[in-house]
Design a protein around this nucleic acid. Structure first.
Length: 709
RNA sequence: GCGCGGUUAGCUCAGUUGGUAGAGCAUCCCCUUGACGUGGGGAGGGUCAGAGGUUCGAGUCCUCUAUCGCGCACCA
């Protein structure tokens, strides 16, 4: 028996060496995998495109979950004899990374505003690349058996080329347009945001009722009302039947007399307040739509920094917070304040990064006519072409796709893929370079970058070298997209839409969405709460195998998973158990040569049948994405059946004199140990490979065939 | 407003096509000197949120109620 089994398993020492062995074997790459047991080459592809982690920090528990689940699937399918590719990547993560970098700048007493864009871009690139290589090391530590030679970064030239081709095609097909529309504007980050990048928070604010000529209007935002010269009511509201569309009314307002125009529109809710409202089309989506329907003028009241413009008269230059009480005071002194409802509860949109209120602004930006892309995906999903784990995400996604709004893809940040568009007066040219003649002839480039999800949405085919490469032909469409449930709209939906649009095929037919990893008390892990569990620390402390089991067992798709020290510790104990089972078996089978076709006696035949049932069950569970059950069943069998019962019985048996029974049992123990290691490998790759190297010289467990049951 | 979930043992959660309620942790008792104390054996503990229905049979399917939560959405 090898000496090492006399000491406890030392995961920290063993793991890096095992990973190195795997890497050197070349088995991470599909073309290097050995032939099938019958000698034929592998043909059936199995592909997972890794969700590229944002290269702006270190790996967190969520990353560890996806690495564990995807690595499990990959190892399983590799052992099943598939031509297996797990393609890793790293994401520049546009706005996300820029926000992280801005915080770093802030700490250094600097700011991005006023910085030379080229210099800033370069700084962030260096920051990103440093994080990228750091995180790659961490993924190796977690045992990721991905093909590093095929790794992709989202800003590589061929990825950008694919993204530009898609944009050109969308433009040619009339599915992307430049429009002057209301966008979600964050006055801190100085960029527009998609609807998904805003959140809604409940606020209690005073709701003011003001006299507006003969009417009473209500508002929580008096600071937007300076230029309000349209008064809107529902066409069927009998209270205001005497007023006709287009009537002009002279009224006294904040900064003096104005002429108001009556507008009749169904957007006005007679139940709300007095049933009359004034509109501020530049700073409200509803108002903007009304203005558009009635062809009304637009005037900006609040600037991009959230300060009042000269139209506010004496309040110009003030922030909203400063100005609001002063404006109310002034209206009150003019006798125009009717009443205040102090307890008005409403929801306001805020920037998902800084929590500042979104200030809607009218901007000229690029929008995707997303309904046209959504429709074929809706049909495909309804036809059952995509399987979701958990199943109910199908309904959630369909609901979202059905109610989808045009997608704003321009961002006013530098960290991203520049939009390939040139302007000259009212002429638009779509291309990476200006039309012949060059920028010298008055063509100016669009200063914006793409929403990072616009490019990420093309990831499955962009990474594989669409449209001509051999990899694309071999590995697309991929088998499964495994990612966090929070990315269902941001990413999964866009991959489905853009993938189908560009390649004519859905990029994957199975979507597995894991739940968020939370602290033991069920709350979100956050640095400020100090309850963050670092997967890398856990891996160092208890071993990666223990961490992986802790992340798999009890983790049903779509449900938050609690991760805590004790849980991982329990699986370190399990690793120790496996180690000691091996020790017991090796001690008691010295001199016995495993015979793969041994005829067990009746008792051991029963044990074999029982084990085969477990193995079949585990296999079916993995095939059906029930990893949490598969892991638990293996744990139960190996510990509480094999170790607690079978090994204990064997002790008595071995002390007896029934040589035939002893021989049979020894053969059985060797068989069950070896096969258990195979079954456990996708879950606990390190310790199983380490043991395998001692009992089966010259072969590696990573490519050992999965038992054919 | 629209949509989606949860409610099972003290705690955290499983429960796959309907077939006598499970695990881990916690609690209590006992055992064990060599595979492993990172151990072993055992015990207590649940009218599966409530009501009704379908069924030979319901934690599982249907309806309603209660309650907690989540997502999406341009409500002045």
């Amino acid at each position: 028996m090898p000496e090492k089994f006399l000491k406890p398993y030392d995961s920290a020492a063993a793991e890096p060496l095992i990973y190195q062995k795997w890497a050197e074997s070349g088995y991470f790459a599909p073309e290097n995998l050995p032939n099938l047991p019958d000698g034929s080459p592998r043909t059936e592809p199995y592909t997972i495109i890794m969700p590229p982690p944002n290269a702006n920090g270190s790996l967190h528990a969520g990353h560890a979950v996806f690495v564990t689940i995807e690595d499990l699937l990959i190892r399983y399918n590799r052992m099943k004899g598939k031509k297996t590719l797990w393609l890793p990547g790293a994401d520049h993560a546009g706005f996300e990374t820029q926000v992280v970098y801005e915080k770093k700048l802030e700490k250094e007493g600097r700011t991005r505003f006023g910085m030379d864009p080229g210099v800033l871009r370069n700084e962030i690139l260096q920051f990103t690349m440093a994080n990228k290589s750091f995180m790659e090391g961490q993924m190796r530590q977690l045992g990721a058996s991905c093909d590093w030679n095929r790794e992709k970064f989202t800003l590589e030239p061929d990825v950008i080329r694919t993204v530009y081709d898609t944009f050109k095609k969308l433009y040619a097909d009339g599915l992307v347009y430049r429009g002057k529309r209301i966008v979600n504007w964050c006055s801190k980050h100085q960029t527009s945001l998609s609807n998904l990048e805003t959140e809604r928070v409940s606020r209690t604010d005073p709701f003011y009722y003001f006299k507006y000529g003969p009417f009473t209007i209500g508002t929580v935002r008096p600071e937007t009302k300076f230029a309000d010269k349209y008064v809107v009511m529902h066409p069927d509201d009998v209270r205001y039947a005497q007023y006709k569309e287009g009537d002009k009314i002279e009224i006294e307002w904040i900064n003096g007399p104005i002429t108001a125009t009556v507008i009749k529109d169904e957007a006005s809710d007679p139940e709300m307040g007095s049933g009359v409202m004034t509109i501020t089309p530049w700073h409200s989506g509803v108002d903007f739509d009304i203005a558009k329907r009635h062809n009304l003028g637009l005037e900006q009241i609040i600037d991009e920094r959230g300060k009042l413009l000269p139209v506010a008269g004496e309040f110009a230059g003030m922030s909203i917070k400063e100005a609001r009480p002063l404006i109310v005071e002034k209206l009150k002194s003019k006798g125009l304040l009717e009443k205040i409802d102090e307890k008005y509860v409403h929801e306001v949109p805020v920037c998902y990064k800084c929590g500042r209120e979104i200030e809607p602004q009218v901007k000229e930006q690029w929008f995707v006519k997303i309904k046209s892309l959504a429709e074929p995906v809706i049909k495909a999903i309804e036809a059952g072409e995509v399987t979701f784990y958990p199943e109910h995400y199908k309904k959630i996604l369909l609901n979202w796709l059905t109610n989808i709004e045009d997608w704003n893809i321009s961002r006013q940040i530098i960290w991203g893929i520049p939009i390939p568009v040139w302007y000259k007066g009212s002429d638009i040219f779509v291309g990476e370079n200006p039309p012949a003649g060059g920028a010298g002839e008055g063509w100016g480039r669009d200063p914006d970058t793409f929403d990072t999800w616009f490019s990420s949405g093309q990831w499955p085919f962009a990474t594989l070298g669409f449209p001509d490469s051999q990899d694309y032909k071999t590995f697309y469409p991929t088998q499964v997209m495994e990612t966090g449930g929070d990315l269902i709209f941001f990413w999964v939906s866009r991959m489905l839409m853009l993938g189908l649009y560009r390649t004519g095929k859905l990029p994957f037919n199975t979507v597995y969405l894991h739940g968020m990893v939370v602290a033991k008390d069920g709350t979100k892990m956050s640095k400020s709460k100090g309850n963050v569990i670092s997967p890398l620390e856990m891996s160092e402390k208890y071993g990666t195998d223990a961490l992986r089991m802790g992340l798999i067992i009890g983790n049903t798709p779509g449900t938050p998973t609690a991760l805590y020290d004790d849980k991982i510790k329990a699986y370190k104990h399990f690793a120790n158990k496996i180690w000691n089972i091996t020790r017991f078996v090796l001690e008691n089978t010295q001199g016995v040569t495993p015979n793969p076709v041994y005829n067990f006696n009746a008792a051991d035949t029963d044990l074999l049948a029982e084990f085969i049932l477990v193995a079949k069950d585990v296999t079916a569970d993995i095939e059906n994405y029930r990893f949490y059950l598969a892991g638990e069943k293996l744990y139960q069998y190996v510990w509480h059946r094999l170790a607690d019962t079978i090994l204990e019985e064997s002790k008595t048996l071995f002390k007896g004199a029934d040589e035939a029974a002893i021989q049979s049992r020894k053969q059985f123990l060797l068989y069950v140990l070896r096969t258990s290691l195979v079954l456990l490998h996708p879950f606990m790759p390190f310790i199983t490979e380490e043991i395998w190297s001692s009992i089966q010289s010259g072969s590696m467990l990573i490519v050992e065939p999965w038992p054919n049951l």
